[in-house]
């Protein structure tokens, strides 16, 4: 007497032939399937930072890809590795995605060597987003330190695309040196066309710098803040957003109206690998965007 255990062949399920939609998190997806994307333009912003404009090749996949400011994608160079990168461009642009990559390790170093025409793999979008719609009808403070302008930039685009929904919108941006202020070619447009107020500050000025010098919190003197009617998005290194948020807290801004984006090591983007896990919180699923109250309650976040 024998009994053969029936085989369940998952490889014959419909999802195997479908384009994975990473916004449908509860469905069975080919979680490792990447969209092939061509680099339309690779722009060297600084010696360390490069902006890539990429287009998902397959029209069906491209049409399906839909993201919100603050979310990230996993960018892969097959055989080299995969990294989590925030979306830096406009989320209403369904033709191409903009990502800005700092050269720090193996994968980012290799991606920096890619020129226009080369390809990368994309999975996503993943993670939480800045609650832009919740901010309707209020003043918005967009505060960035250093590379923090990268995830913040997609919310700048959002604000422009929905400008009548918001009252005063102010960008405060600080960097170590004037040369490290990213996207400086766009500031004029942000001020004049997007109708935003923008202040920049650097810690180490060069001979051409005429603006203020010091830490980003110094810019608060120039900005009237109505704590009862303002939302803030703060992106930057942990020391920076802690200082800024504490400052805003002192001005009376509720912690649940301040949003920060955390950076942690991620290997999957899907709440499985635990590399970004802190207790029950997964930076990739519950973040990267958190309100400041949640961050305060995270052991080890700052």
């Amino acid at each position: 007497m024998t009994l053969k255990i029936p085989r369940y062949d998952i490889n014959r399920e419909p999802f195997m032939t479908q384009t994975p939609d990473f916004n449908r998190k509860s469905q069975l997806l080919q979680t490792e399937r990447t969209y092939k994307a061509r680099i339309n333009a690779a722009i060297q912003l600084t010696p360390e930072e490069k902006l890539f404009q990429i287009q998902i090749l397959d029209p069906k996949e491209r049409a399906q890809f839909s993201c919100l400011p603050g979310q990230f994608v996993m960018v892969e160079l097959p055989g080299c590795g995969e990294i989590a990168i925030s979306i830096s461009g406009s989320c209403s642009n369904h033709e191409f995605i903009e990502i800005c990559i700092r050269k720090v390790g193996k994968v980012t170093g290799m991606i920096h060597r890619l020129e226009a025409g080369a390809m990368v793999g994309i999975r996503g979008p993943f993670g939480t987003h800045f609650p832009m719609r919740e901010m309707n009808g209020s003043n918005v403070l967009l505060i960035a330190g250093g590379l923090g302008i990268v995830p913040l930039r997609s919310s700048i685009y959002w604000v422009n695309e929905h400008r009548p929904d918001y009252k005063d919108v102010t960008i405060l941006y600080g960097a170590r040196t004037p040369k490290l202020l990213l996207f400086d070619y766009q500031y004029e447009e942000w001020r004049k066309v997007f109708n935003l107020t923008m202040h920049t500050i650097v810690e180490e000025p060069d001979e051409n710098w005429t603006g203020p010098v010091g830490l980003i919190t110094q810019l608060f003197d120039q900005v009237p803040i109505d704590p009862d009617d303002t939302f803030a998005i703060v992106c930057g290194p942990p020391v920076m957003f802690k200082f800024v948020c504490d400052h805003l807290s002192a001005l009376g801004l509720p912690m649940q109206r301040m949003f920060v984006s955390l950076e942690r090591r991620m290997h999957c983007g899907m709440g499985k690998c635990c590399r970004c896990n802190v207790g029950s919180t997964f930076t990739c699923l519950d973040g990267p965007v958190f309100d400041y109250w949640s961050v305060m309650n995270l052991q080890e976040a700052i």
Binding site: E76, P78, G79, G81, E82, C268, K272, C274, R275
Partner: peptide
């Protein structure tokens, strides 16, 4: 179940 992902060629 914590894991890491690596790629190689």
């Amino acid at each position: 179940y914590c894991y890491g992902v690596e790629e190689d060629v």
